[in-house]
């Protein structure tokens, strides 16, 4: 019984992964030579990017603050105020900012994308495209794909900056570490460009995960309005799980 359930679960994961790989191949085939609808791309970049700024900003500011609060205990214990910037910055840039930005974008953009594609599928709008001899992949999926990946990359850059800002001012308020000391700690050489780059590479990987899962579950929607809800649910879970697994793998692959 339990073994059966686990078996079925594995089969399901294998099937989903396979379908996503096929989708990825189809999207990549539309990129060389580029057959992507430019108008849809711009529309989606605006909708996904610009409109996600507020929640990414709030998340980043609070995350930076929380990182400093967590580091504060340790800093106080060792009296190492000068290291606060480095302590909070290391985790923020390499790990927490890309991760939390990805989770928020998955919730907002990924889930939205699934709901949108899912609605188009259940109302036959996708069939309508095909009947007009317009390729749904290059018209709908590829622009969203590119928009999601580039949105997450840019949002991570933005979140990095805001998180450090939040961290600096929380350090000032909570521990009396001046923002100047904080930034000195950041730039004194213990942190380098590689740390920022690690975070940014991760953001691209997470962007691919979100784009693939959200497009896949959106296109695979079945069964009317409740089906759209189920698809959204499946997307956010699969994205979260995928993000963590790939986070681990990229962390190891990139190393120090």
């Amino acid at each position: 019984m339990a073994a059966e359930a686990v078996g079925a679960w594995f089969l399901e994961i294998a099937e989903t992964t396979g379908a996503m790989t096929v989708l990825l191949a189809k999207v990549l085939a539309r990129l060389v030579p580029p057959r992507v609808d430019a108008r849809e791309l711009v529309k989606n970049l605006y909708k996904m990017g610009v409109r996600s700024l507020p929640i990414v900003a709030v998340t980043a500011l609070f995350t930076g603050a929380i990182m400093v609060i967590q580091a504060a205990t340790i800093v106080k214990r060792y009296g190492a105020e000068g290291l606060l910037g480095w302590g909070a910055g290391f985790g923020t840039l390499r790990e927490i900012a890309p991760l939390l930005t990805a989770l928020m974008i998955s919730g907002r953009v990924g889930a939205n994308n699934t709901a949108e594609l899912g609605t188009m599928v259940v109302t036959e709008q996708l069939d309508a495209l095909r009947v007009l001899a317009i390729d749904p992949i290059s018209f709908l999926v590829a622009p969203r794909f590119i928009a999601i990946v580039s949105t997450l990359f840019m949002m991570t850059l933005f979140a990095d900056a805001l998180a450090l800002l939040g961290a600096a001012y929380t350090g000032d308020a909570l521990l009396g570490v001046s923002p100047t000391t904080f930034y000195n700690g950041l730039t004194s050489g213990l942190l380098n460009f590689g740390d920022v780059a690690t975070g940014l590479v991760k953001s691209v990987v997470f962007g691919l995960v979100i784009a693939l899962t959200s497009c896949h579950f959106g296109l695979a929607t079945k069964g009317g309005a409740p089906g759209v809800g189920r698809a959204v649910n499946a997307t956010v879970m699969a994205s979260a799980a995928g993000i963590f697994v790939l986070d681990y793998l990229t962390s190891f692959a990139l190393g120090d």
Partner: peptide, 17 residues
């Protein structure tokens, strides 16, 4: 019909926030 999708999206974002 679309409403359920949007509600689910909002729930995830707002709960995380």
């Amino acid at each position: 019909s679309e409403g359920v999708g949007w509600a689910t999206t909002r729930a995830v974002v707002n709960t995380s926030l």
